[in-house]
Design a protein around this nucleic acid. Structure first.
Length: 217
DNA sequence: GCGGGGATTAACT
DNA sequence: GTTAATCCCCGCG
């Protein structure tokens, strides 16, 4: 997207976008929303808007990661230089680089010391994004579409340009199933901690039973 | 320091 | 179905 000129700001489209962004800013979620268990937060985030600056998408897919006992979670090693943010209070971003290529956006949840977080796996375009479900389909696509990267790690979602807001949208049905790409986690891989807006075209994978196809070595 | 591997994606065969 | 890309985390010595 190019920077709007002064003339563009006066078009009806630009006015509608500004109005939508103002509405989202007024509906920003506060810290209380995040200071609950990751499972509840992951489910309730479906249908909310993830906003960064002038771009926003409706969250349609998430995954909950529990504390150190969860063998699929980065918290499984306890607090480290990278993951200490997960052990702080809920409501801040945890952003890390995956496979040396993709930025992953997570929201820390719960109280300090718990180590829980929620990964945002897919968004549907809402403001400032091409009207194409593929732009936010997958966790690496979410951050690329919204311009989120590791500079946003540890950012407080209760203030600033990066936040989550309630919307008028409500998913007709939220479904759960096993998390994606965590086959290394043994029995924890089978737990139904992935949540998605059922039948939504922006969800990264549609089948409830899909598990990683990564080959064993 | 070293070595193994990963909460992915796109482009192959 | 398979594989490369690409960086840095983490455990261990």
């Amino acid at each position: 997207m190019t920077t709007p000129t002064r003339r563009d700001r006066r078009t009806p489209e630009a006015g509608a976008i500004r109005g939508e962004l103002a509405h989202l800013a007024a509906a920003r979620l506060g810290s209380d929303f995040y200071q609950r268990g990751a499972i509840d937060v992951a489910r309730d985030l479906i249908g909310c808007a993830l906003v960064h600056g002038r771009r926003a998408g409706v969250i349609v897919e998430t995954e909950a990661y529990l504390g150190p006992e969860d063998l699929a979670s980065h918290a499984r090693f306890g607090p480290t230089a990278r993951t200490s943010v997960m052990f702080g209070p809920g409501g801040v971003a945890y952003v890390y680089l995956c496979y040396g290529v993709h930025e992953m956006f997570n929201i820390v949840t719960g109280d300090a010391g718990q180590g829980e977080a929620v990964l945002v796996r897919a968004i549907a375009p809402l403001v400032g994004l091409p009207d194409d479900a593929a732009v936010g389909r997958g966790p690496g696509k979410v951050t690329a579409a919204l311009g989120i990267d590791r500079r946003h790690d540890r950012r407080d979602l209760a203030r600033g340009a990066l936040f989550v807001a309630r919307t008028g949208d409500w998913p007709p049905s939220v479904t759960s199933g096993p998390r994606i790409g965590v086959a290394y986690a043994g029995a924890w891989a089978a737990r139904p901690y992935r949540y998605w807006w059922r039948d939504h075209p922006a969800v990264s994978r549609s089948r409830a039973t899909t598990v990683s196809t990564r080959r064993r070595r």
